[in-house]
Amino acid sequence: MITVNGEKLDFSGNISELLDVLEYNGKRVAVELNENIVPKSEYDNTIISDGDKLEIVRFVGGG
């Protein structure tokens, strides 16, 4: 089990795959893994492990 934005989720894979599952556009988010920011260039290479905590912040248009 992992925790995404405070909610438990059964998932294995990398961050890009998690964003796909959650239907988030990877160009419009900021992702923190265990309180460390993950650079966009590392989304494909960063494997999420059991017990990991993620914060995914999504941006929508308008300002």
Partner: peptide
């Protein structure tokens, strides 16, 4: 929204000591 993400990610990656205050969702 993509420019928002670029700015926030760049600051968090390059300057973890700085504060950033953003906006998302006000239409």
């Amino acid at each position: 929204p993509e420019a928002k993400a670029i700015l926030v990610n760049s600051i968090l990656e390059n300057f973890p000591e700085k504060y950033i205050v953003g906006g998302s969702g006000m239409a």
